[in-house]
Write a protein that binds this DNA or RNA. Structure first.
Lengths: 98, 98
DNA sequence: TAATCATATGAAATGTGGTTCATACGAAGA
DNA sequence: TCTTCGTATGAACCACATTTCATATGATTA
């Protein structure tokens, strides 16, 4: 990845938009437009965010005609989310939403 | 934890100061002043940051006389860091500093 | 209980990243 | 090659998190 630091890597999980993208891509790879429509967000917003996610190899891209299909790097992301889930289960108090 | 969301949780790793604190506490628990001096940062800065880390149960606190000793929640944090290390090893290019 | 040490806290100032908007680029088909 | 569709990009703007500074609180000891 061209990601310059651990901090940069983690920023991708520390942001609502990026986190939602990650969640969407857990199910299936998607193009920019698909994501944009599914999330009801501007195309450029999604695009900017995808760029940063891909830069840290959290997502992979492949071209398919005019579209770019983004997919999740599950090897890293899935166990990461599991860890946090466990953490929340253990330490979460009433105020915690998720 | 009183941490309201995954995003809030991850913000602690996505910030230089907080990340440095985490790294320091990998070795041994420390008081606010110890950290402050070791990191050459203002006491209040450290204190503010510690508060957020503790709020998400990334750190634990215990009182010891006048001091408050902060320690790392290794159960969650260590495997988390391992995951990212692996990720970096696999995907990191030349520009990557760590 | 006064003084001191260690830490926390609030608000203002500062810094930084995210979104928006306009536009450019690239691929594919007519 | 012109047009259209899909996506990327740059800069200005905005929102929010972080730091700073002054001060308050809590624990301990003389």
């Amino acid at each position: 990845m061209k990601c310059g630091s651990y901090e940069e890597f983690f920023k991708n999980f520390a942001n609502k938009t990026k986190f939602k993208i990650i969640m969407r891509l857990k199910n299936k790879p998607m193009s920019v437009n698909e994501l944009s429509k599914a999330m009801r967000e501007e195309q450029s917003k999604i695009s900017h965010n995808l760029a940063k996610l891909a830069r840290c190899s959290i997502l992979n891209v492949k071209q398919k005609g005019k579209q770019r299909i983004y997919s999740l790097n599950k090897d890293t992301v899935m166990p990461m989310l599991k860890l946090v889930e466990k953490h929340v289960e253990k330490h979460c108090d009433m105020r915690c939403k998720k």
